[in-house]
Design a protein around this nucleic acid. Sequence first.
RNA 1: UGUCCGAUGGUGUAAUUGGCAACACGUUUGGUUUUGGUCCAAAAGAGUCCAGGUUCGAUUCCUGGUCGGACAACCA
Length: 567
Amino acid sequence: MEDSNKTNNTEQTSGESKSLNFIELIIEEDIRTEKYGKRVHTRFPPEPNGYLHIGHAKSICLNFGLAKKYGGKCNLRFDDTNPTKEDTEYVDSIKEDVKWLGFNWDGEYYASDYFETLYEYAVTLIKKGKAYVCDLTQEEIAATRGTVTTAGSVSPYAQRSVDENIDLFARMRAGEFIDGSKVLRARIDMASPNMLMRDPILYRILHAEHHRTGNAWCIYPMYDFAHGQCDSIEHITHSICTLEFEVHRPLYEWFIQELEIYAPQQIEFARLNINYTVMSKRKLLSLVQENVVNGWDDQRMPTICGLRRRGYTPESLQNFAEIISVAKRDNVIDVSLLEHCLREDLNKKAQRIMAVLQPIKLILTNYPEDKEELLDAVNNPEDATTGTRKVPFSRELYIDQDDFMEIPQHKFFRLSPGNEVRLKSAYIIRCVDVIKNSDGSIKELHCTYDENTRTGMPESNRKVKGTIHWVSAKHAVEFEARLYDKLFLPENPEMVAEGEDFRSNLNPDSLKIITPYAEPFIKNIAVGAIVQFERTGYFCVDIDSTPKQLILNKTVGLKGAWQKTGK
RNA sequence: UGUCCGAUGGUGUAAUUGGCAACACGUUUGGUUUUGGUCCAAAAGAGUCCAGGUUCGAUUCCUGGUCGGACAACCA
């Protein structure tokens, strides 16, 4: 519009310039023109009828992030207009998740706080002749709404007088009518090409107890009649929502205009999709209800509580939201990007320890029977301030099956008969014998160690192709590891054959439970803490852990380029 | 069939007034490394949905298509 004084759509931050997303562009323009003074006030408006997922995390980061960036405010508002589906359990979980993600809201509000005001708005509309009480049944209303290509027909009740409507609406509130017998509708245009404008329902009768207002009301506003006005009441400047509400915008604007109240600006963005998972509340709920997963916080769920339990950090999620940015086109984000953000954060923070997932016994035949050593191991090579720890070493060890090949394939750098390998933070060893069980499987490996190659000794600098992790058998701590994989096999779980649904795409191997061995240090780790098992991946201590049984979730594997093929 | 919205490497997001299509993930290659991790370096990969038009010049502006998504709950 304006052709002068255009804002540059990049920002200068410490020498680097970063592109602004389309919402920031709008906001900066609004600040420049002082459309709302220089105010920026957003809000995150969930319905407390379920648990938040990573799609909500995108919205939370967006709304709170914008407020922070522009020195504005962000409210948390619960859109609790349907008492039959909502509960304080969800209110509490939502608040916990938002806080955990790292955000503090300015105002905590509920649509139900505004029920009286909303009622008055409805009365205002009635008085202007813009709303009427309709006695049509649900089926009749649906039948007379028309279709996307044909107009609907006007309700026979549309011409009731203002006085009659006022009286009827008051009696609806007073509880004189049973559920479903009457509704309040806006009088707009039954022929509108926008279905939402065909005399939409404003209020319905619901003799249901509300989790906050109790039995004070037996009529409740529809979402469409509440949402925009709530934003207006809170003087929200930018009402950011997902694309499917684009069609609702004309209706919200109609209410605002007829009511002559403060007008926020609605901006729609494309919701988040990630491959190999589903993101709809309804589908996630069905996974919970059908016990496909173990609750909303199952470690495989894309819910915020599920990700938290899996070992995701708030920082990694915030960074993810930042990187995927926001736009209006439909998108499917590669799950590898999410995992990258996680690893990037965990790599800096995670304590390293050694654990052997699939053990093979390894005996150092030239190491004294009763000898034990405490070796120094680096806690985190990315953070020198974390220092070192002691790891016990002895004659009998465990190493991982993957680190041994009797007949090494090309480019296999680990242990094989006759070859040397380095035991991390310990000695260089050579495999001299493979002892087998009667069925041909490997019973144990016999190796010799070079006593002059302990880490720190001059001889330890000798070049060896591979370094592997290990655990002293005598000191090994057994624990339970829950190995998680993607919940669905195909990239798009919605892609199914005729007659099937997304459940047919479930990955039967999304959870494997094993009992590996770890170095004793694992006993020092608190519930929720995340560690890196050297060369394997990140794991976090699950809340199911007991003093007797340590349980760790596999958060995400290390990147690992080399894969053993076959077998 | 109606209305609205969208379309840029495999994925996501950029490209200032119309001026060499950039960044990240992923992939591949090389280097460093007592994690086949991290880190460092490099490469491949799009000519911007299509067809016209305006222009010296179009991802950007115009016209017409195509494809994808949303909308017909007394859900949000």
